[in-house]
Amino acid sequence: MTRANLILLALIACIAALPLFGGAYTLRLGTIACMYAIMALSWNVVGGFAGYPSFATAAFFGLGAYIGGVLLARGMPLAAAIPIAGVGSFLVAGLLGAALLRLRGHYFAIASLSLIEVFRELVNNATDLTGGGMGLNIPLAASAGVMADATFFFYLMWGVLLVTAVAVIAVSMSKLGFGMSCIMQNETAANMVGLNTTLYKSIAFGLSACFVGAAGGVYAAWVHYIDPSDVFDILYSVKPIVMALIGGLGSPLGVTIGAFVYLGLEEVVWRNYIQIHSGVLGVLIVLLLLFLPHGLTSLRGWRLWGRAKNV
């Protein structure tokens, strides 16, 4: 295990101590921080390891939120609903990936963007199951007070983050991760030497959806109300990319730190400039891409970018 991965695990372990220090607001921030880190780590599997510019994160976040939400609303316990949301997202993404990942570059980007639209419209129109545009109410579990709830959902999201980080590190050290980086560097060559690229790419896409879906399920249970325009927000697709770009593409530690840095910036902007927060986010994205295109931990990312010129 590399030093960066150990630092990542240590960092996540440190976060677990958060309830000792803060109130409900801190825990809320901590929960979102874990959620963002899950998204960034997951996106990194397909975008950083395999080099496919996926904009489908929001689609699977929403899918997971609705799988989890519908199951919870039908009375299934949380312990079953969250894993089902994750596994369901994995399967859907893997199957879709087998078809979509034959596309490259711009076409793949457009297809993955459109996936959000398709899922949102499907959920919008399946009113009987999902409540459509009216949204879905998820019943409150027996509550033991505000702080207890906040702590519970914080640890739930943190648990998903831990599983995500361990899985991503395991992938990066395994033959699977090696295959993905081969695909990123030269897919045709990887295919030629006998790598089953379709299978590898589908698994990468599935993994990038799996934990995001589980996080979506936790999110649904946490906020008790979801509606299609909320969870299928295209911003959920772009934010992980921005985080990964901040932290340096490809490194799990980098993207996690990127997620935390991004959350900090977002929170400051939200609190102070609510009217123009999305514009400020836009300015941030533009500045980042123009002046820091290789992120904060950029020395390694530099070489990766150089290779990807003709994607």
């Binding site: 975008g47 510019p53 904009f55 570059g105 711009h106 980007a109 772009v238 990319i241 921005v242 770009l245 994205i285 533009v286 891409l289 123009l290 295109p293 970018w305 990807a308 010129k309 003709n310 994607v311």
Partner: peptide, 9 residues
């Protein structure tokens, strides 16, 4: 730059 950068920009 690759599509990821131009699209995000």
């Amino acid at each position: 730059a690759p599509v990821l950068v131009t699209l995000t920009l």
